[in-house]
Amino acid sequence: SDGDPLPTVSMEDLDHLAQGVSKSHLETCQYLGAELQQTSWQNFLQDEVKSYQSKPAEVMWQLCAVKITEAIQYVVEFAKRIDGFMDLCQNDQIVLLKAGSLEVVLVRMCRLFDSQKNTVYFDGKFAGPDVFRALGCDDLVSAVFDFSRGMCSLRLTEDELALFSASVLLSADRSWLQEKLQVEKLQQKTQLALQHVLQKNQREEGALNKLRCKVSALRSLVIRHSEKLSAFRALHPDTVRTLFPPLYKELFGA
């Protein structure tokens, strides 16, 4: 920080902020808890797993790029509904989304994750890491699954997840921000609200620290995704150019 004092906020302000962010999260979370129950946590059958595994890498990459892009569109909508986000300059809105939207998708993934079976909701059913073998990046896939399992073990409520997502998105240390101080103030307020909610929910002392550790894990996953994409693009430039969603290419520089 540049030494500016923390914004003055009352408990009521923090409650109000927490409620607003939570509402935005629920409105834009793509899958509601109730809907997920209805999917009855059906896993892919062995034949279906084999069918994903036998797809050409280009087809599986395209499918995953489409699914990620769909999820990102909901994150953009989440950002737009966070109090103060649309008051930032447009450069900074873009910078924050470019750097943070995939991180929020990864955070949200724990809502769709079955820790006991090590499966995630994907393309209509629950999939284990083996479903993604054709991508040719087993190490990244298993790191993403490990991250999700770790997030699940924190057993965050939707309110906590919403505020953590907002705080990830409003990271004031992203490169190329023009009005860093504005973003910093928003992030500080969001983190205070998160802390307030964690205390209200009688979380153990270390809960906030555990979440802070997740931030560095997220950054490393996003860097690894970029590296894998670069390697894939080097082999299949035409697939990326003609078949990948334009928003995905815009965000990840493909």
Partner: peptide, 20 residues
């Protein structure tokens, strides 16, 4: 701006292209 045309559009749209 041209480089982030779609993000700009999504940010400016009052409704999202996805069915919320």
């Amino acid at each position: 701006k041209e480089k982030h045309k779609i993000l700009h559009q999504l940010l400016q749209n009052s409704t999202s292209p996805v069915d919320l």
